[in-house]
Design a binder for these strands. Sequence first.
DNA 1: TTGTAAGCGTTATCAG
DNA 2: CTGATAACGCTTACAA
Lengths: 342, 342
Amino acid sequence: MKKITIKDVARESGVSIAAVSYVLNGKFNKVSDETIRAVKEAAENLNYVPDFSARSLVKNKSMLIGVIIPQTEENSDIVIVNPFYSDVLGGIETKARENGYHILLSRVERGRGCFDVSMQRNLDGAIILGAYEEDYCKELSKVKMPVVFLDSYVNNENFYMIGIDDLYGGYIATKHLIANGHEDIAIVTGKIKNHGVMEKRFHGYKKALEEAGIPFRQEYVYSGSVNYEYGIAAGNEIVNSGLPVTAIFATADIIAFGAINSLKAWGKQIPEDYSIIGFDDLSITRMFTPPLTTVRQDIAQKGMVAADLLIDILEGRNKKGIKEMTLSLNIVERATVCQLTK
Amino acid sequence: MKKITIKDVARESGVSIAAVSYVLNGKFNKVSDETIRAVKEAAENLNYVPDFSARSLVKNKSMLIGVIIPQTEENSDIVIVNPFYSDVLGGIETKARENGYHILLSRVERGRGCFDVSMQRNLDGAIILGAYEEDYCKELSKVKMPVVFLDSYVNNENFYMIGIDDLYGGYIATKHLIANGHEDIAIVTGKIKNHGVMEKRFHGYKKALEEAGIPFRQEYVYSGSVNYEYGIAAGNEIVNSGLPVTAIFATADIIAFGAINSLKAWGKQIPEDYSIIGFDDLSITRMFTPPLTTVRQDIAQKGMVAADLLIDILEGRNKKGIKEMTLSLNIVERATVCQLTK
DNA sequence: TTGTAAGCGTTATCAG
DNA sequence: CTGATAACGCTTACAA
């Protein structure tokens, strides 16, 4: 069965290919009602489906949005382990589909990856998930397409950003612990990079401490990777450190899960022995025991907002010239933080 | 900055565009070493990146693989809630990237969805995740591209299948419970459709029962959706049923999580009051408490195998003419099943 | 209102 | 070995 083209539709409906194109593109002011009807009928009958490659070639618009998951050292796993990605991906896909765009999913290593894929595919735009790296920006600024960064603090005129107030998040998390009487609060976090999300949350932690007059102790900082395994490792370290830690701020739920499980494995009670607060409120958090107290951000919502913004830009609807959006955050109290009793 | 085309490279290197194309496509037998060098250098200098749309147009090959997540009633969530999808997606993406393909992610409702996207984008092939529907097959058989189904029992010559032996899985799961002395075994499962995965697991359950001489009881069948919420609902029902259930076979881990949590909420002990075995061994299972005994399948592996098979077909490497692959299954014993003591 | 024809960036055919 | 040139399917001036 050979491909049905616009030509076939033209022949079938007895008009020129130009007329067909007009009808198919809704340029109704250029054609008669009669033509419209005929073309529509023929297209329907023949099961005509436009070829996006051809369209992309001439219009230089692909209706494709790249979703790029940077491949970092900490994130080199075969599977997209962090459920954060699937939550956000769902949000992006939903909005893209609603607007007739498709999603091109691609993990890329540092280097030319981003640039190449965007050029090859004539991507209309891209959304980059977390894990900001200087390299990505440099290569991406050579591309003319709009790029929305999620959870990255990039200092670049060409880019858009969707994020949360990470400093504030770290701040309220820590404050919540302090309000419950804790002073020996460890922080377990991913690698603290300059201008990174983790750094902001860390600063929030320090700020809350300072404000409460609690001295910051470097020994209370556990910094590794944003994954379950590191949470476990950190939990072990804390137990064996001999430090009088009573509470832990995990800068990601997934780390909190690891920490809690390792603590439990040492026979510790949560929250009696250690109060713990996480960050993200992943969709799988509701399945976890004990119910995790955490700083909630609406992750799927974040994906939707990112896609909406990108599409608005693409369609020239970003009238307000938004370059940056910050989504709200709130603490959801469940069962892993309790009042410190001495 | 305007687009660098093959023409620019030709001009820069002082040869014809045809020669450039030859070099870029590795047809070295048609050009001199001198030309090769010149072209490569020019391409490098100009940062030339081939345009896949143009290539796709003439070669009728897009280097795009569609990953289709059917949108069913039970699966209509905004987010791709079932972590199963992200696990498998990671596997697919890995293999695709290794082979120079990109992934087009698309959820589709019943109807023309699949067909349209595959035609529009000139997809080279597609992988369809679970949730078999008669509709999909019908529309897809009109497309000439190879399609690999994951976890679907399709009876159609044109398609390929990657799956597991679901009947066997249901069988060993139930047998494991029986071996631990249980006879009053409930099954909590997604909707049991003809030729569906859930039906097979259900048959496995019945077979194990029969083999052990335990009468099948319809009251022990809880059938709903494959999600956490249904697990909770079923757990509640079981507790309130007054039935002497001592063990539960949940046909998906995610259901098991819900069931366990609702059971715990009723003050029940797992596994003392209820032994539970799941199915899948999701990557998040290791984070769950208590550690879930389950029928393990390697989900990321499944994604990789599917992508490998599809790509082999696309590149004419499926010499053995494989149409169907069944991956292995095994029980991993953790802590949610115990010997029944009366 | 309609149709003709010139591209869009590639590849592939076929003479030189 | 090399280079015009005709496709591929579509959009869009421009003419009719």
